[in-house]
Design a protein around this nucleic acid. Structure first.
Lengths: 153, 153
DNA sequence: TCAAAATTGATATACTATATCTTTTGATCG
DNA sequence: CGATCAAAAGATATAGTATATCAATTTTGA
């Protein structure tokens, strides 16, 4: 099953491969993010970690762990929302370059997509035209997901 | 002179046309933003308003005024930076649809550009493909401006 | 002028994030 | 095994961004 929404063997393996310890705290944070169906704030995450009468998770620890998980590309930070999501390719073997996110203005659901190279290229080209380079390929686009669009008869 | 960096007759006219009062407080905030050469936080703006021994500008007022100026498209909020910039088309007669911003990771300078319809279309198409609609056309892209790029010989 | 609406003032508080120092845990090596 | 050193987590304080709410003032218009 590749869509079990918690830390899997393949994720554990990535930690091991990179010499990063998958501690209890880190596993808690990653499990919460992977089983969430929405982007979560750091404080949301802390709360959810503490929900099951587990030991107290300080938000400071959450932030520290989020930093690490982000560096290692297990999760993404949504900069327009100040929230965090697990990477939709967390269990994949391959690397993926940039990420684009669609954020629903209705229900706040987040969809991670990969734009076509042409679309990304068009943005890069416009940036180059005014002298910008080394563009980070993370884009966050807001709209309405299929469930939140006004019904069309 | 169309590039004087304070509230001009044409801006005043826009307020009048829309029946919005250009009060002293609103003018202060807009002047600060228009004469700034960088994006400013709400607290930056309050400080700058108070710099010239002018009367005390509460940050609450700044936020209220920013909301109004944003609704009226005189300014934009950079969601990835929690900062505000005046619209580069503030003195133009025509409307402009969406805005895209290039934000320099080095010096934090902000450039407002307009992507080609093709580029915007490519993003929209990718969104539609996964069921998203009514995409807001504001994009914020990070990179390095021409002054902050490592020198190339 | 007077009443209603719009604007501003003042204060409290929520939310997001970082700094810093201490304690605990885990790995390594003799 | 136990000493030692580094990594991780705990604890606390504080900075930075934003909203809620109610009171006072100003503006508008009947």
């Amino acid at each position: 099953m590749s869509d079990v929404k918690t830390v899997t063997k393949s994720v554990e393996q990535k930690f091991a491969d990179r010499g990063i310890r998958l501690t209890r705290r880190r596993r808690q944070v990653l499990d919460v993010l992977m089983s969430a169906d929405a982007a979560l704030s750091a404080y949301d995450i802390a709360e959810l970690c503490n929900a099951g009468s587990e030991s107290h998770m300080p938000t400071m620890s959450v932030y520290r762990i989020l930093d690490l998980l982000q560096e290692e590309q297990f999760i993404h930070r949504l900069e327009t929302a100040n929230k965090y999501v697990s990477c939709s390719h967390i269990a994949c073997a391959h690397e993926h370059s940039g990420s684009q996110f669609l954020i629903c203005d209705g229900c706040r659901r987040v969809e991670e997509i990969q734009l076509s190279p042409e679309a990304v290229g068009a943005v890069e080209m416009a940036a180059n035209a005014v002298g910008f380079a080394s563009i980070s390929p993370q884009l966050e686009v807001k709209g309405l997901c299929v469930d939140c669009q006004p019904e069309r008869i």
